[in-house]
């Protein structure tokens, strides 16, 4: 008889029970969905990308980023400091498998739900607009997911590297505000110097605005590097996270 290989799904399910548990997650979900609902019902929109922008940018993106900085970063760190991560690592899945399961349950799944729910609400307000171009709406959803997963991966890496929930939460927030600060500075400099290149760099830092521009203004030229900047960083960080968990991570 062939031996069955342990699967990823049970570990993802077990850890998701903590990362998506009520009422903390539900409260966050209600907050972001309610904000999106209010914003999407105020602004008239006739394009799927604009519907997504009206609902998510910037209030929901900010709220989800802060949530990820606190939950993804300090959640992973507290798993390590409480000894639960050692228990997970004893599961016969290999370090990369456990790292992947934690990535799914702590970062990807919360992002998919926290971005998806507000967009479902926004789509319910203007169903005719979304029905006209559902793929464009999905593309906008994907863009927000990629951007927030990139931030989540950054915070997750900080969490497993620091192994201390307090330190990782503060470090995660500091890194987030640094990123936002650079974005703001580039925008201010772009306006002050009249530099279109700086404006394009700043825009590339928020992947979803590049995708939104491409979707809502098809005539506007969007550079390939602008579209690859954040996804490239995401892939690089993901590889670093897996490599760190495979070779460098030492339980405290």
């Amino acid at each position: 008889m062939s031996e069955r290989r342990p699967r990823l799904a049970p570990l993802v399910m077990v850890d998701s029970a903590d990362s998506l548990k009520a009422p903390t997650f539900d409260f966050m979900l209600l907050v972001v969905s309610a904000i999106a609902a209010a914003l999407a019902s105020i602004e008239p929109t006739t394009n799927p990308a604009s519907v997504a922008d009206a609902a998510l940018d910037p209030a929901v993106v900010f709220a989800v980023s802060l949530y990820l900085a606190m939950r993804a970063s300090s959640g992973l760190a507290s798993l390590a400091s409480s000894g639960l991560l050692q228990l997970y690592l004893s599961y016969p899945l290999g370090r990369v498998g456990v790292a992947l399961a934690l990535y799914l349950s702590r970062i990807l799944l919360p992002v998919l739900v926290l971005v998806g729910a507000p967009l479902v609400v926004a789509a319910a307000i203007v169903p005719h607009v979304i029905a006209g171009a559902p793929l464009a709406y999905l593309e906008a959803y994907g863009a927000y997911v990629v951007y927030l997963t990139f931030l989540g991966t950054l915070f997750g890496l900080v969490g497993v590297a620091s192994k201390n929930s307090g330190t990782s939460a503060v470090a995660g927030l500091a890194i987030y505000f640094l990123y936002e600060g650079v974005y703001l500075l580039l925008n201010v400099m772009a306006t002050a110097r009249g530099s279109y290149t700086l404006h394009k760099i700043a825009m590339a830092m928020t992947f979803y605005s590049v995708v939104s521009l491409k979707l809502s203004s098809p005539g506007v030229a969007v550079s390939a590097w602008q579209l690859l900047f954040v996804p490239g960083l995401l892939v690089a960080l993901f590889i670093v996270y897996l490599a760190y968990m495979r070779w460098r991570f030492e339980p405290p």
Partner: peptide
């Protein structure tokens, strides 16, 4: 596992409440 099992139902409650908020806001 109850967290994930009840997630779709909790999601529906949140979506419903948010759509009501959208109605009031509009």
């Amino acid at each position: 596992m109850t967290g994930l099992r009840s997630l779709p139902a909790r999601l529906l409650v949140v979506l419903g409440l948010s759509i009501i908020i959208a109605g009031i806001a509009s």
